[in-house]
């Protein structure tokens, strides 16, 4: 097996163009597990950890450009205010060791329906930057996940960055796991209220073949907030509204039974998480005047 170690973006893209079968490796917390279990025998590994554009984040025109190879630990430590939903999701990933190694780029590369970054990225309207020697393109998060462990990146492309707009309103992330740390989600929910655009965004994980948004729930809630004048009044969120939002989020799921949980439980928990999360987010919105 070849081990390619580019140190610049140009070298990395050239290597990927030349060896489209080479598997990129960032933190390796998915790649090495698959290799250990002999699920995967790639002809070559392409180590992306030496490319500084991938391992840094910065501000670009008011938006955060998060290098695909920035670790969860750094997101938690450095980006909690700018990317609150993603930071909350990052906190739930694995253990300290996994968070030190694991990256959002890797989560996107693996495109597992259970990846914890995805609901947060969907809710934040994140954009995924893909580069190849042919150029750069940007894919919206909700168009990125194509199927179970399949994503929109071509074989000659690298995932280079995630671009996110700092929030204009509260964000929440919740996950269900059957132990209180280091656990793969049985169901996950991301929520962002965007008061500037008066839209609601969601992301649901582990409840369908891909991470996805709960469109009908988003539209329902945005319309209800609008028609009741709640964005301006910041009045209390009616309990019934939170509950109905939960039911509509649940309706977006299409889960399966597996060893981690039943489909029925996944749907049930989705409704509960969505109801609770919207209640917390709304309380934040009410108390955080001026945002």
């Amino acid at each position: 097996m070849d081990f390619l170690q580019p140190s610049t973006m140009a070298e990395a893209l050239a290597a990927k163009a030349e060896h489209p079968g080479a598997v990129p490796i960032a933190g390796g917390t998915d790649v090495m597990v698959e290799m250990n279990f002999d699920k995967h025998r790639p002809p070559a590994l392409l180590d992306v950890t030496r490319v500084s554009e991938l391992t840094e984040w910065g501000m670009d025109d008011g938006r955060v450009r998060l290098g695909a190879g920035v670790s969860y630990t750094r997101i938690i430590d450095e980006l909690g205010d700018r990317l609150p939903g993603l930071a909350m999701a990052s906190r739930t990933v694995g253990s300290p060791q996994i968070r030190n190694r694991g990256t959002v780029g890797g989560n996107l590369g693996a495109a597992s329906p259970a990846g914890d970054a995805h609901p947060a990225l969907l809710a934040a309207d994140a954009e995924i930057e893909l580069q190849s020697t042919a150029g750069t393109r940007v894919v919206k998060a909700h168009e990125f996940y194509l199927g179970v462990k399949r994503n929109a990146a071509r074989r000659d492309e690298l995932i280079t960055a995630i671009v996110l707009t700092p929030p204009s309103g509260p964000q929440q992330f919740c996950k269900i796991g059957t132990r209180n740390a280091m656990v793969i989600s049985v169901a996950a929910f991301g929520l962002a209220l965007h008061p500037d655009r008066r839209v609601v965004r969601t992301g649901i994980g582990s409840v369908a073949p891909t991470p996805r948004r709960a469109y009908a729930a988003e539209e329902f809630l945005a319309a209800e907030l609008e028609s009741a004048g709640l964005w301006e009044s910041r009045a209390e969120l009616p309990t019934a509204l939170a509950r109905e939002f939960g039911e509509k989020v649940k309706a977006a799921g299409a889960p399966i039974d597996d060893v981690r949980g039943t489909a029925a439980y996944r749907l049930h928990s989705l409704a509960v998480m969505a109801r609770r999360a919207v209640t917390w987010a709304w309380t934040d919105y009410r108390t955080a005047r001026g945002t």
Partner: peptide, 16 residues
């Protein structure tokens, strides 16, 4: 959160 069911997964703030 670490003292609650679900821990940092943030599934409850005391509800239920």
């Amino acid at each position: 959160l670490r003292s609650l069911p679900g821990g940092v997964a943030n599934s409850t703030h005391g509800e239920g």
